[in-house]
Design a binder for these strands. Sequence first.
DNA 1: GATCCGTGGAA
DNA 2: TTTCCAAGGAT
Length: 272
Amino acid sequence: MLQQTPVVRVQPVWEEWLRRWPEPSDLAREPAGEAVRAWGRLGYPRRALRLHAAAGAICADHGGNVPGTYAELLELPGVGSYTAAAVAAFAFGRRETVVDTNIRRVHARLFSGAALPSPALTAAEMRLAAESLPAGPGPSVRWNAAVMELGALVCTARSPKCRECPVSASCAWLAAGEPPPTYTPKGQSWHGTDRQVRGAVMAVLREAESPVAAELFRQPATDLGFEPAGIGIPLAALHRLNPAPEQLERALAGLLGDGLAELHPAGFRLPA
DNA sequence: GATCCGTGGAA
DNA sequence: TTTCCAAGGAT
């Protein structure tokens, strides 16, 4: 849930999730669509699908217990190098090189003198992170947590709080006179994109308690002469986007291809 | 390596 | 209002 999503937004969803599914086996028993529904508006709903799949893999391959080594974790759906290292370190106390966006930024400034890390994680960065990691499980776990928190709370992307930074005296970026970023990160476009249409369709499917006829996506409900039960608001939001027919078809096909939706005789629905 | 994949709060 | 960007991963 924390992948590309701030802690404050994750926390309430995470608490409800663990109340409902305290063990991997509890989640694995559910249809994938229930995981997607409970995911709510966290974004990137494929993560919900993969978390559900990971629960299944944990039950099938690990007796229902989350594995504790980097290599085993990395095999799970939706778990990449960052998540595998973070879980092994923070949940199992192992010495792992954890590199998230916060740690990358701290290292870029403190060690390399750059305002921002490069767009993609490099081998040199991993080497630098591995070299700076203290020896011993306990110190390494605390180091990972400390550098991550420093990046999240003090060494922030915009307007870092250098006056509050405990290592400002040894910061290469400050010493260099706070040079600006050498590249301009281009943000993801959103308005008018397929991604926005996918999001609007998913909002409808999450609210729907029965399959949604394809015509409801393709044509405003007012033109159909009736009010669809329960999904009027997200459906109106979708039609307000006024996606081109081709774009809507692309979004629906994409969701089907990703397994986020399935086509029932009565219409589209979350995977049951 | 480049792209794609959501969402909403803050600047 | 627009832009930025947040505990990334898969293809």
